[in-house]
Design a protein around this nucleic acid. Structure first.
Lengths: 111, 111
DNA sequence: ATATCATATCGAAGAATTTAGATATGAGGT
DNA sequence: ACCTCATATCTAAATTCTTCGATATGATAT
């Protein structure tokens, strides 16, 4: 069930309004952590934590330049996530609802 | 910031692989709770809790018929959520990154 | 080499989420 | 009326998330 897990990580990352807002900010181009921090009322360590979550799910990537870290959105992940969202919300031949086994999700056994 | 909050609820709901899988199952049409429960290794009360979260964010709605509850996806929410996802990941004139005030997210003060 | 700046990591507290068992509700059947 | 079935709600334990202060790291400037 890695398939679901991969994309639910992205959704979980976007499930926090501050992180969704950070993504929105990055949609117009690269920003460094300090630019983002300026806009929010949160500590530097909290922002760093949120950026890590956004990076770990693949939605954002960081680039170091001198003492700064610049962040950008990752188009490929965005595209794949849109695709995933469409897939799970659209009728289809090979949907899990037609799978007759009763084990489509059993925790971590297949990870 | 109700705008972000509204959709981040949907993402949070989809941020659990079991719930994403339930949505996938519903994509081919209405199912009752017992149909869904059959496919998963989870207790009835846990499923009921997950269905509540999916309903509360507007992604799913329930319909009672006799002793059964039938669930379906809500197309309108799906469409709006796609739109939101596109908006926050696409460059745009009125992006919050161009908003010069430094208060775009301050917790609940505007709710 | 030392000081400063930007960012990351650690550690801990509090809040929220996930889960299941027990119980409640409400519809149907006998 | 009573029993059973499907689902919801309550409660509580375990886990995960969020946040921040303190500290570490690593780059640049003096």
């Amino acid at each position: 069930m890695d398939y679901y897990l991969e994309y639910t990580k992205v959704f979980k990352a976007l499930g926090d309004p501050k992180r969704a807002m950070i993504v929105d900010m990055l949609s117009c181009g690269e920003l460094c952590a300090c630019d983002i921090l300026e806009k929010f009322e949160m500590s530097q360590s909290t922002l760093s934590h949120h950026m890590k979550i956004l990076c770990e799910c693949g939605l954002v990537k960081g680039r170091n330049e001198g003492k700064w870290t610049y962040y950008t959105l990752v188009d490929e992940t965005i595209g794949k996530t849109k695709q995933f969202f469409c897939t799970i919300t659209t009728d289809k031949e090979n949907c899990i609802c037609r799978d007759k086994t009763n084990c489509c999700w059993r925790g971590n056994e297949n990870e």
